[in-house]
Write a protein that binds this DNA or RNA. Sequence first.
RNA 1: GCCCGCCUAGCUCAACUGGCAGAGCACUUCACUUGUAAUGAAGAGGUUCCCGGUUCGAGUCCGGGGGCGGGCUCCA
Length: 648
Amino acid sequence: MPEPELTLELPDGSELSLDQGATGADAAAAIGAGLARAALAVKVDGELRDLGSPLRGGAKFEVVTKDSPEALDLVRHDAAHVLAEAVLELWPKAKISIGPPISDGFYYDIEFPDGEAPGPDDLAPIEEAMAAHIKADEPFERRELPAAEASELFRAQDQDYKVELIDDLVSDEGTETVSLYRNGEFEDLCRGPHGPSTGRIGAFKLTSLAGAYWRGDENRQMLTRVYGTAFHSKQDLKEHLRRIEEAKTRDHRRLGPELDLFSFREESPGMPFWLPNGTTLLRLIEGEVRQQLRSRGYAEIKTPQVLDEELWHRSGHWDNYRENMYFVEAAERESGGERRRFALKPMNCPGACLVYSSGRHSYRELPLRMAEFGLVSRYEREGVLHGLLRVRAFTQDDAHVYCTLEQVTDEVDSICEAIDELYARFGFDDVRVELSTRPEKSIGTDEEWERAEGSLREALERQGREFDLSPGEGTFYGPKIDFHITDALGRSWQCGTCQLDFQMPERFELSYTGADNADHRPVMLHRALLGSMERFAGILIEHHAGRFPLWLAPVQAIVLPVADRHNDYARRVAAELEAAGARSRVDERSESVGRKIRDAELSRAPFMLVVGDNEEGEGAVSVRSHEEGDLGAVPVAEFARSIAERVA
RNA sequence: GCCCGCCUAGCUCAACUGGCAGAGCACUUCACUUGUAAUGAAGAGGUUCCCGGUUCGAGUCCGGGGGCGGGCUCCA
């Protein structure tokens, strides 16, 4: 009688028969010795498992090697365990909490004894201890324990966070047994899976330290988070570190001052000062948005910066947004004897509603579209500010559309189209769309929210767009559609937004006269195409690494006189370029040509125009391109024309 | 707000354990008049982020404040 067998289905569709009780490692060995050596884990019916886990018949089976997409997370999770192992060796009294793999590395949150928290210099000794455990090639060994027993085990070691984790698993999920993984002397509570041994961690590095609240709750203990990253090979790690360096050289906070675009000052944290070059960039971006406004029937308005506090009570911002608002008071008492209190607008919508309600409206005017480049001020907690990407004052390319519920779908269509066109103009082609629904803190009835969410969803579905759903991420006054772009480094940024609002028209008692000569309530769409103009500028700076395409470059051409006697001619060239619509300036310093070229290159101007005796004699410029180097002499008029053509 | 680190000339950074605050770049002046990535010389430039303390003496040590940077669930 043959032994009973179990049969697995392999990725190529073939079948593999094994003895009962075979493990993942056995299966890998049966396929091939090389594969067995390369195996890190296995996938059974799509679920990642240890090599040592027993198999069941009929399952889809796959061996995970370092070429598998899941392998990196596995190795990083292994590295997190080794990190905890090393830390406990160096700080036996440390308490460990959780240590997951993350998108480009791993971390472990640890409570160090009072006064013993590591500084940046302490990372090297931890790395050394980790390297020793990796060299020792300690196998990962799994065992399962009843939850109560595991809880007792960790309690005996004073590992309070592990005890809390187990107790929560029992009470929240009814867990009865938990798994533990051991490597060397160290044993951690862990769901797994893990690779076969620590020696399979190809290359790792600890990258930084940070504070992190236990379970992300700011009322709880602050732990020390040790960040690291791990790869299969030293080359991969090196490449990763190189990419981080590359991102640093593109950092807009560094390029901004370097290219004279903007600067930050202590006198106004989180609020940028825009220099002439940066202001030019903002105007160019604004020009693109205005084109969308013109072609899509938007009128432009401008509303005040400072509005009576009462308005914000009416709008609901007082109850829902107060902690993010700035309040101001006049120096003098007004005639009533009171100092009137005002708020700096954190959003443009209440002002826009006042514009709407300052006249009567007919159904024939709808949809009524009003845009505003509105400067909004929002108090952001210190510590979250980040260059242009997280600020306390910024300009929204905002607009509000007043229409009927039936018109919403068409309006959303038009907004999506505008976003596609605008983003494409800036070179962003893949747009990710996200629909966010009712958050906990919100105003309005269930029925209104249902209708609002329904009509946005309908618009997206009608366009046949793919979108992600973010439950509970809507604004307090309505659901929204967000638009995300991906930059040259593969990072995703939320820019555009389209929000449906039944509340504001209600609160401001907005109305229009219908065909039936009765008053009706319009619905309101809030939308921004780029979101924050300044933030978008920051994204563009990093996307292009400061080397803007010709049409966006604040200075498109720098004219470089060879000697002082050519300055007059250089100025005439610049004037001719300006007349043709090109932005240029002249470097009139008494410096060598080499020097002027170097400085012009560093400023990343797309073109440098060298003018000396030869050029002046022929009415020409010698063109040097930032991208292509020396291009030779051309007549000034011809160069001016070619710039105009390339920008159009 | 909280954890860790940082703050010295406009910028980038020096100044051993507490002992006269420095360099390069930028700036100003002068000379050079330059042909595709840094011409030379001289000069000027400081409350060492702010307030307080320790000390004969503080950029340095201690306390408080400000600003900047990395972070603050991608859940065993």
